[in-house]
Design a protein around this nucleic acid. Structure first.
Lengths: 137, 137
DNA sequence: CTAATCTCTCTAGTCGCTATAGGTTCAAGA
DNA sequence: TCTTGAACCTATAGCGACTAGAGAGATTAG
C-alpha cells in the first residue's frame, strides 16, 4: 500500500494535484487508514500514471475522464477513444499553425527597428499598428 | 467621444474586457459623463488598438503594461522593447517545438489501433504507458 | 414621454493546478 | 513507551485573462 507521497514520487504528480484529481472525479476516492490518510494499491498507481501521461500529451481533464470511464467497459466500441485522440491532435495542429504565423510576425517585427530610443522605435510602432503586419494572426 | 460600446465595436475588444483592462491598469481610467458612463477620445481608441494587437500576438498583460509605460517616455532607450519582443518570440518558438513533438506522438498513437472494442484498444494502452512512446514529450 | 438599448458595479465562474494555514497522524529512534 | 519530525488532512484563496450574470441606473430614438 502506498501513501499519497509514495504515489507522488512514483508518478511525478504532486501531492495536491493527486487530491485535486480525486476531487475532480478523475480517480476514485482512495481507501483510508484509521487516521483518515489515503492509501493506494497498484491499481491506483496505474490509473494515476495513465492520467499523468495523458496530461503530458495535453489532453484535458474532461477528455481523460471520458477515457477512464471508457476503459472500465472493455466491451464497448473504442470509436470514442479514437475520436478523442483525433480531435486532440487536430487541436494541437491548429495551435501549431497559429503559433507559426505569430512567430513569423514577431520575427519580422524584431528586425524592423535599429533605433536607440523609444520615440523612434519601430517595434512599438509595429505592435501598435496591425496595418504594418504582413498577414493575419 | 466614444462610449465603451463604440470603442468595443471599433477595436473588437469586448466591453467587459475593456473594463478589465482599466482595472488592471493597462489603460488609464476614462473620463465620465454626469451619469458615470465612460467616454473615450481618439487617444483611448489608439491605446486600446495597441493592446488588442499585442494581445493577438500573444503578449501578456504584464509585457503590454511595460510597453505602454515605455511608450510614454519617448527619450528612453528602446532596448527593453526589443527584449520583450525577443523573449516572447523565444517562448513562442519553444511552445511550437513542444507541440510538434506532441503532434508526432499523437499521430503515432492514432495509427496504432485497429481494434473494435475498448478491451483491445491500443490507443488507451498507448496513453497509459509512456514506455510505448517513441521519444520524449 | 416612453421604451429600448446601453452602461454601471459587483460577484462568481472558467482551467488546472499551486500555495497557505492550522491542525492531525504516522513511523522511526531513544 | 515516548517523542520528535515528517508527512498527511481539510478548507480556502490565488494565478491569468477573461466571461457571464444580476440588478440598477443612464442615454437616446421615436
Amino acid at each position: 500500500m502506498f501513501s499519497i507521497g509514495d504515489l507522488s514520487r512514483r508518478t511525478g504528480v504532486k501531492v495536491p494535484t493527486i487530491r485535486y484529481y480525486e476531487q475532480m472525479g478523475l480517480i476514485a476516492a482512495a481507501g483510508r487508514t484509521g487516521g483518515n490518510q489515503r492509501r493506494y494499491d497498484r491499481d491506483g498507481l496505474e490509473r494515476l500514471s495513465f492520467i499523468r501521461h495523458a496530461r503530458d500529451l495535453g489532453l484535458s481533464i474532461d477528455a481523460i475522464r471520458e477515457l477512464t470511464e471508457l476503459s472500465t467497459h472493455p466491451d464497448r466500441p473504442c470509436a470514442d477513444a479514437h475520436r478523442i485522440a483525433r480531435d486532440h491532435r487536430a487541436q494541437v495542429r491548429a495551435k501549431i499553425a497559429r503559433l507559426k504565423r505569430l512567430e513569423a510576425e514577431l520575427g519580422r517585427i524584431e528586425t524592423m527597428c535599429d533605433a536607440d530610443t523609444v520615440g523612434d522605435c519601430r517595434i512599438i510602432e509595429a505592435l501598435a499598428d496591425h496595418g504594418l503586419c504582413s498577414g493575419e494572426h
